[in-house]
């Protein structure tokens, strides 16, 4: 059992949990994820680790209430427990000093992006972060992102905060005004697809982090398979990060709708 130490609402549907998981806190690196089961009879779902505190023995998870299982998790309160949290799983992000890195996150994807922003900055990169959401209330973790970014660009669909427009507009602004060595994108599959198309045009190496359907998360079931560079790969053990230009996002989006 994994105790919830604190619960904060970013918005009505987006919740930040700090969960007691000392072994995971110690071994996790940016890019890793965990498999969470809210209760007995619950589904196993993957959630990327947003932060960890080794001393306190906790990890931070940001959950968007979008279905049965995320709703069960979001309904839990401080002091209650998640039945299972297992990890850290997947391959950690390769952090190098490459020069200028644009980190763009959409919606709840900003949460797993945060540790990468932090690590990229600490590795000596110039970090420009582009945060995007439908509307002002859905922009999360802005303050924390600012603390590790040289510049933050906010994009909202409705123009209620920052600039009006899609994440790709924000990213393209940066590309047009200065040399960009790498892009990291985490968010909805459709967003990552368009970011990938944009950066392919400019030939900028781009990493994406995929959040596919999983069951065990340790390579056993193959539910998470995606086509990367024409080959079938497993997100849980080969990923979750891949070269975005090589990912077949259309196939991935079809597979994400397997149970809809």
């Amino acid at each position: 059992m994994f105790k919830i130490v604190s619960k904060d609402l970013f918005s009505e549907k987006v919740v930040k949990f700090v969960v007691e998981a000392p072994m995971i806190a110690r071994s996790r690196r940016p890019g890793h994820f965990v498999i969470v089961r809210a209760c007995d009879g619950g589904e196993r779902i993957p959630l990327t680790i947003a932060d960890a505190d080794v001393k306190a023995g906790t990890i931070t998870l940001v959950v968007q209430d979008v279905g049965v299982s995320t709703h069960k998790i979001c309904s839990l309160n401080t002091g209650e427990e998640l039945t299972d949290v297992v990890g850290p799983l997947g391959q950690a992000t390769r952090i190098e000093n490459v020069g200028t890195v644009v980190c763009c996150g959409g919606g709840v994807g900003v949460a797993p992006l945060l540790p990468i922003i932090k690590a990229m900055k600490q590795a000596g990169n110039r970090v420009v972060s582009v945060l995007a959401a439908r509307t002002k209330d859905l922009i999360i973790l802005e303050e924390q992102v600012r603390a590790y970014s040289d510049e933050v660009i906010i994009m909202t669909d409705d123009g209620s905060y920052g600039q009006k427009g899609l994440v790709t507009h924000g990213v393209e602004q940066v590309i047009l005004r200065e040399p960009v060595n790498q892009v990291v994108t985490i968010g909805p599959a459709i967003m990552m697809k368009f970011v990938s198309q944009l950066t392919a045009k400019y030939n900028i190496h781009t990493l994406c982090s995929l959040n596919t359907i999983m069951v065990d998360g340790t390579g056993m079931c193959g539910a998470c398979r995606v086509t990367v560079d024409g080959r079938t790969r497993f997100v849980c053990i080969d990923g979750p990060e891949f070269d975005a230009h090589k990912v077949d996002f259309d196939e991935m989006m079809l597979r994400l709708r397997s149970y809809n």
Partner: peptide
């Protein structure tokens, strides 16, 4: 092989 509802026996049996 990556079409929806094509899966490994591991996935099917585990579910």
């Amino acid at each position: 092989e990556n079409l929806v509802n094509v899966m490994s026996s591991n996935e099917y049996l585990t579910r």
